[in-house]
Amino acid sequence: MTTAVEAPKGTVQVSPEVKAIHRRMQRRQQLGRALTYLVGILISLWVLVPILFITSMALTTPAEVRAYPKGILPFIPLSTETLQFFLNSRGVLPGLRNSIVVAVITLILSTVIAAPAGYALSRFIFRGRDMFRLSILAVRAFPIVILSIPLAVVFLRAGIYDSVYSLALMHTALALPTTILVLASVFSSIPYELEEAAMVFGCSPAQAFRYVVFPLVLPGIAASAIFTFVLSWNEVFAATILTIQNRTLPAQVLVTLNQSSEPYQFAGGFFMMIPALIFIFYIRRYLFNMWGQVSK
């Protein structure tokens, strides 16, 4: 049996049947690849076409936004009028500022609090480690709505309701579990031997961290911070519940939705998508660190 299988391999002359099989397999592979491309392109269109629609609405004149039927060709006429109209509407610029303030505080707070915990998870074996890990996974699975209502009542009583800072506290609580897990996996990707080597050469553990580990994990930390920023920028439920005067951008758009015109809404929708479009591109390498983590 074995010789029969090995025989064609050794021979220089390949029988026409084998050639035919080989050709068929190659054709099938090419067909498979073409099919995969086709499916990939179709799914990409499914993702991109709605984005193209809203982008072309936001980058044209308000008159064109109201027009019907709409031209399928985008960006005709290309204009920033709709976007300007949105940005000059009442509450939008303050909302934009609030959104940025909340997101920046959230990313700083959550990184500062989560980094030590992530380091501990990746570098130490300690009693309760699995428990800690598991409870963080569980925390991440809890719904935001259940947190917002009691926090609103607590903030009201404490007199810190309707403030960007208390909203940032809440967003930090939301972002913290993910940040801890991501940073743990980022630290895990740096071999401990590097730290050890630094210590052999006379670094203290703190110095080893500062001069060896820290520069290596910086891109990972930046990616997780960006993701936290996007999370806070997008969050709308808690933002609407916890603020009244100091609304963030999504909360402002949501609350004024009923009284606002379509150009305002479409420009708002587009504007809120911008950070995601830019940032996801930069952090796509880390996506599996972020979300793949949960399945491990």
Partner: peptide, 14 residues
């Protein structure tokens, strides 16, 4: 993975 970073409000508007 673009949609990972989109809020449900923006998607609703889209």
């Amino acid at each position: 993975s673009i949609a990972l970073g989109l809020s449900d409000l923006a998607v609703g508007i889209v």
